[in-house]
Simulated scan of single mutants.
Amino acid sequence: MRVGWGDILERWSTVMVDLHEVYGADWDDPGLVRAWPWWRARIWGLLGSERSRLRRELTPPPATARRG
């Protein structure tokens, strides 16, 4: 499955939870001012994190082999 920004933005509440749990970064913290490239890298990084809800929502489970 190909993931785009539309897929990510539809799950923004999941992204915010993951940013906090995976990176300890709170999007709403005024003291945590970061440039967009910093945030973008971490948001895309969520798709590679085993702990990420976003990854689980956007990555289909592996197909299981049928035994016959």
Rank of each mutant, 00 (worst) to 15 (best):
37 P>L: 02
48 G>P: 05
44 W>R: 09
38 W>D: 06
39 W>E: 00
35 A>H: 12
40 R>G: 02
37 P>K: 08
35 A>G: 09
24 G>M: 09
52 S>L: 13
39 W>S: 00
22 V>Y: 02
33 V>L: 13
41 A>E: 15
39 W>Y: 06
36 W>M: 03
39 W>P: 01
43 I>F: 11
24 G>P: 08
41 A>R: 15
34 R>N: 06
31 G>A: 14
44 W>D: 04
39 W>T: 00
25 A>Y: 13
50 E>C: 03
42 R>A: 01
24 G>K: 09
29 D>V: 01
33 V>S: 12
22 V>D: 00
46 L>M: 10
22 V>M: 01
54 L>F: 14
38 W>V: 03
34 R>A: 08
29 D>S: 07
48 G>R: 15
29 D>E: 13
27 W>S: 00
32 L>T: 11
26 D>L: 09
43 I>Q: 03
36 W>A: 01
41 A>T: 12
40 R>D: 07
33 V>F: 09
28 D>L: 04
41 A>L: 05
23 Y>Q: 01
28 D>K: 05
42 R>T: 03
40 R>S: 10
46 L>H: 05
36 W>F: 07
36 W>H: 05
27 W>T: 00
32 L>F: 15
35 A>R: 15
39 W>H: 02
47 L>T: 09
41 A>N: 12
21 E>F: 04
39 W>L: 01
41 A>M: 07
41 A>V: 05
52 S>Q: 11
48 G>Q: 14
24 G>N: 07
31 G>S: 11
26 D>T: 06
25 A>D: 06
52 S>H: 13
29 D>P: 03
40 R>M: 03
25 A>F: 14
31 G>P: 04
38 W>L: 03
47 L>D: 05
30 P>T: 06
51 R>E: 14
26 D>R: 12
37 P>H: 09
31 G>Y: 10
44 W>M: 06
25 A>I: 06
46 L>E: 04
25 A>V: 09
39 W>N: 00
28 D>T: 09
25 A>P: 02
51 R>W: 14
24 G>F: 12
22 V>A: 00
35 A>F: 07
46 L>C: 09
35 A>N: 12
24 G>H: 05
24 G>I: 06
